[in-house]
Structures are given as C-alpha cells and as structure tokens.
C-alpha cells in the first residue's frame, strides 16, 4: 500500500469531482474516522486509517486488496473509476439519471442509455457531466457521462444516446477478475 503521489492525487480528485462535485470533501472529512486513499499496483483503494494499520501487518506481496477499490490508473496515467466505487459515489452525486425498468437490462449489459430508456434526469444537467444512473426505484446501477444536456434531451429523438455507459453493476459478473 503506497501513498499516492501529488500528481496522482490531483488526477484522482479531479475525476471524482466530475461525479460528486464539492462532496469529495465528505469522503475525506468524515466524522466516523480518518479515511485515505492508497495505491497498490496502480489500483486506488479507499480505506480507513484503522483498517490500513491492520492491513500493513500483511506482507506487501501477500496483500491483494484492502478497503474499497475506487479504480485504477491506466498506463497513460489517467484514472478510471471502477464500479466498486459506486457505493461511495451514489449517495453524493448531484446529477442523477433514472432509467425505465425496460431499459435497465440494456444498461446492465453495457449499453449506453438512449432517450427511450430515460425515465428521469436531474434538472439542468450539463453536457459531458458525470452522472450516477439509478433504476426507477432509486437503486444505483452504474454511472456514466451525459451526451446531452437536460434541455437537449427534450428534443432528442428516441434512439439518441443520452448518457454514455462507463460502469454498471453487471461488471461484477462480467469482469470479475479485472475489477480488483
């Protein structure tokens, strides 16, 4: 478990602000203990200080994962969020998108959200904004990036893409071995 370099911390936070905006502070500034980000083999883990100290007793070679994997740094030093981060992102996301029950499966198989599958969207969502995608019963099922703003959505034709798929909970099965 390595501490993130300043450069990488910046990249990580910039990515997180795309989804949860100012609420990133709430991930760090928590009343129930100190939480921090650690890096292992380019994966970033969100871990409490208490758990980290326990994890440090394990030999680094033998430690596979500790805490919650938020994502990974690619070879080109970009940060990619994993679906495992959804638990922490979903409650803080200011921009949300709800999909109709008929379009849920399509999304969970890794497809983009199209206009016909769009149930509801947060007012004033700009274009290219990171959004968390919910079912109509308010269960977070993934996240993506809007392809159109809310106002544009009204005039879009039914097959137009509203949000680009980035991660969904179907990945827990589909890419089980690459997630952590």
């Amino acid at each position: 478990m390595k501490i993130l370099s300043e450069d990488r911390t910046r990249i990580l936070f910039e990515k997180l602000t795309k989804y949860i905006g100012v609420n990133v502070k709430l991930l760090i500034d928590r009343p129930d203990g100190t939480y921090c980000f650690r890096e292992k083999k380019d994966r970033v883990y969100y871990i409490s200080e208490r758990l980290l100290q326990l994890a440090q007793t394990v030999k680094p070679d033998h430690l596979v994962s500790a805490g919650t994997c938020f994502g990974k740094f690619t070879k080109t030093n970009k940060f990619r969020l994993h679906i495992t981060a959804l638990t922490y992102i979903a409650p803080y996301a200011p921009f949300k998108l709800w999909v109709k029950p008929s379009a849920e499966q399509q999304f969970l198989y890794g497809h983009h959200v199209i206009k016909s599958g769009l149930g509801r969207i947060t007012e004033n969502t700009p274009k290219n904004q990171g959004v968390v995608i919910f079912t109509m019963s308010d269960i977070p099922i993934g996240f993506g990036v809007t392809a159109r703003s809310t106002t544009d959505c009204r005039h879009a034709d039914p097959l137009a893409t509203i949000a680009f798929h980035q991660a969904d909970i179907g990945e827990y099965i589909r890419s089980e071995d690459t997630l952590v």
């Binding site: 300043e6 911390t9 990133v24 760090i28």
Partner: peptide
C-alpha cells in the same frame, strides 16, 4: 500522519474546486 494527510487532501480538493 493521518491528520496531515487529510489536511493535504482537503487543500488539494479546495484547489481543484
């Protein structure tokens, strides 16, 4: 230290925002 790291992270977030 955990406290210092938290401080650093918060200032970094402030800068980004």
């Amino acid at each position: 230290t955990p406290a210092a790291e938290k401080e650093q992270n918060l200032s970094m977030i402030d800068r980004i925002l």
